[in-house]
């Protein structure tokens, strides 16, 4: 394990930034939202809380070109977007967001592998930062996330210092930078970790969601409570677009000067034309769409992949303009458990 003073974090990040493309959480002033950006001059870093936008977009961007079609001299050609090589570093990721990557892996790295996602995943060295200041909307602990330890390297901030523990082979790549600024240590920080875990587990959202529905599709699908829960859903894409595990996308071709570009971009099951076919959208009303999003996270994903499709980041809880969020769903489905037994 490595230890450096709080003041030398800048020196460490600058050292990393010299060798790798480095992304850190930033917030530009009180009125702005926080998100991951290039380290740049290291100004405006935001390390105290979870960011408004997560790390998903560094692996699965909202919009990306996947191929180009070109016609030149009467010949037609397809050019797939080249994958980039080399590593980059993401510092300050939260454990929930990193767990989110695990859910994306189950989708994008399953056959047929998504080459663009895979290349970014292989390139990304993720340094987590422990959550000293969880939000009332945090409920990661309900999904077995450890807010004090995650990623390729786990950084933990204590009163005077940062500790870095290397957790994976990829994490070892940063040993030169770590050794240039930090000292090795065998301090025992387990007690600090326990404090962080305990604090997160006591957040109101974590307490409210501790009984996750453990029911099958059939038992939850037709519950009347979906009407009530979805009644004021606007059908916007806020919850989907901010969610670290939402992975649906659409593909669109558009004309370019010499052919066409094929882009894929995030889609949302909350939209009225999601998976629209010639016969229409299979989920006719907002109730069905709403139910899809939450059942997917809490039931289908678990049935199909073995883990929940929610990681408890609380973003949809904070940002839903109608407050029709995950905690309310979990609680209502929990009551359904009572009704059934």
């Amino acid at each position: 394990m490595y230890k450096c003073s709080k003041e030398s974090l800048g020196a460490l990040l600058s050292a990393i930034n010299e060798k790798y493309a480095l992304y850190v959480p930033k917030k530009h002033g009180e009125g702005s939202v926080s998100s991951f950006e290039a380290y740049g001059d290291g100004e405006n870093m935001y390390l105290s809380g979870i960011t408004d936008r997560g790390i998903k977009e560094l692996f699965f961007p909202q919009c990306e070109e996947i191929a180009r079609f070109v016609t030149a001299n009467g010949a037609f050609g397809v050019k797939e977007t080249a994958v980039k090589s080399g590593y980059n570093v993401i510092f300050g990721a939260r454990a929930c967001d990193i767990k989110g990557l695990q859910t994306l892996d189950l989708v994008f790295l399953a056959e047929p592998e998504d080459r663009l996602y895979k290349s970014r995943r292989e390139a990304g060295i993720v340094v987590s930062l422990s959550c000293g200041e969880p939000s009332e909307t945090c409920f990661c602990t309900c999904f077995g996330v450890d807010p004090s330890k995650s990623g390729d390297i786990a950084a933990i901030g204590t009163d005077g210092a940062y500790y870095f523990e290397i957790l994976t082979e990829k994490g070892r790549l940063l040993i030169p930078e770590l050794s240039s600024v930090c000292k090795t240590t065998d301090d025992d920080i387990e007690a600090e970790r326990d404090k962080i875990r305990a604090k997160a587990a006591l957040m109101p959202a974590a307490l409210a969601a501790k009984d996750l529905p453990d029911k099958k599709t059939d038992e939850l699908f037709d519950l009347p409570v979906w009407d009530k829960l979805s009644a004021h859903c606007l059908g916007c894409g806020t919850c989907t677009y901010l969610c670290p595990t939402c992975q649906c996308y659409d593909i669109k071709d558009s004309k370019t000067a010499d052919g066409a570009a094929r882009c894929r971009f995030w889609d949302s099951c909350m939209y009225s034309d999601f998976t629209k076919m010639s016969a229409g959208q299979p989920r006719l009303t907002q109730k069905e769409r709403y139910r899809q999003r939450f059942m997917h996270k809490l039931v289908y994903f678990k049935e199909n992949q073995g883990i929940y499709g929610c990681v408890g980041c609380g973003r949809c809880v904070r940002k839903c303009p109608a407050s029709a969020h995950m905690i309310k769903v979990i609680k209502e489905l929990g009551k359904a458990d009572e009704r059934h037994t």
């Binding site: 606007l234 059908g235 916007c236 894409g237 303009p321």
Partner: peptide, 12 residues
Amino acid sequence: SKCIRCNACRDA
């Protein structure tokens, strides 16, 4: 440029 096209503004 910050817009993520969630359409919440339109929908509300």
